[in-house]
């Protein structure tokens, strides 16, 4: 598994500034195909910013990002290609409120992948079935609960057949009783071999599903390792402090 050709995401010394504030400080990481990486850290540590650079929602100013062999640069062709391969699930769901659930899921396949409407609808219904809300297909997002909305958002991402999915605190905006239904869907995905990077505070999920846990603080990767190692034997003081606060 140490073969570098299996690395689907390669970040080398990625740095990002917001004005004078350095949000990312030489972040380097390699993610293998099928790997599930959980990123955690205190708020403001740059973990969201980091995963947002992977699909260019934030522009990095230094270092290299290579996704699935494509270099992230100012080349719009590369940016578009990477965005087609990388799906993203947001904290606030960001479903399109003026479209039905079904339209939300078929939008990108029709307009970006140029699939026929019929084909995409069929696939969308399959995916909605898979996340367990096929009966809501014709409703508008506003009529669904938070947990249901987040599952629609996952189906919407899956409809593009991404090789990588980024999760940006997918359960933070949910009421406690809805967290499980979303985590369950994520666990299924993880077991199916999709590469996932999740920013989350759900340490139970990390322990159970993650191949690797990355701890970030002040824009840097402080520590990374297997969940077992990370939770039982953290090396850095900052990691210990964080774990003591969160567990």
């Amino acid at each position: 598994m140490s073969d570098s050709s299996e690395d689907i995401i390669v970040c080398e010394n990625v740095s990002k500034w917001f004005g004078d504030f350095r949000a990312l400080h030489d972040v380097s990481i390699r993610v293998k195909k099928g790997e599930v990486v959980v990123v955690c850290g205190p708020s403001g540590s740059g973990k969201s910013t980091f995963i947002r650079t992977i699909n260019r929602l934030e522009e990095h100013q230094q270092g290299r990002i290579i996704v699935d062999g494509i270099e992230m640069s100012n080349d719009i062709r590369n940016i578009d290609a990477i965005r087609r391969e990388v799906g993203m699930v947001f904290q606030q769901f960001n479903l399109f409120p003026h479209l039905t659930v079904l339209q939300n899921v078929t939008l990108a396949p029709v307009w970006v992948r140029k699939k026929t409407r019929k084909e995409s609808e069929q696939r969308a219904l399959e995916l909605l079935e898979r996340v367990g809300i096929v009966e809501q297909a014709l409703k508008f997002p506003g009529q669904l609960s938070g947990g249901q909305q987040q599952r629609v958002a996952i189906a919407r991402v899956l409809a593009m057949d991404p090789r990588i999915i980024l999760f940006d605190e997918p359960t933070s905006a949910l009421d406690p009783e809805m967290v499980k239904e979303v985590l369950d869907v994520m666990k299924t995905l993880a077991s199916e071999g999709i590469t996932m990077i999740c920013v989350t505070h759900e340490m139970g999920f990390a322990r159970e599903v993650a191949d690797r846990v990355v701890f970030m603080d002040r824009g840097q990767i402080v520590e990374e390792g297997t969940p077992e190692h990370f939770f039982t034997n953290p090396r850095h003081e900052r990691t210990k402090l964080f774990l003591s606060q969160i567990l």
Partner: peptide
């Protein structure tokens, strides 16, 4: 909300399609 544009861009829609759709 800003998230609407971000979600659209993350799905691979370009600027024009994001605006129109």
């Amino acid at each position: 909300p800003k998230g609407q544009v971000e979600a659209a861009r993350a799905l691979g829609l370009n600027v024009v399609k994001t605006t129109l759709l």
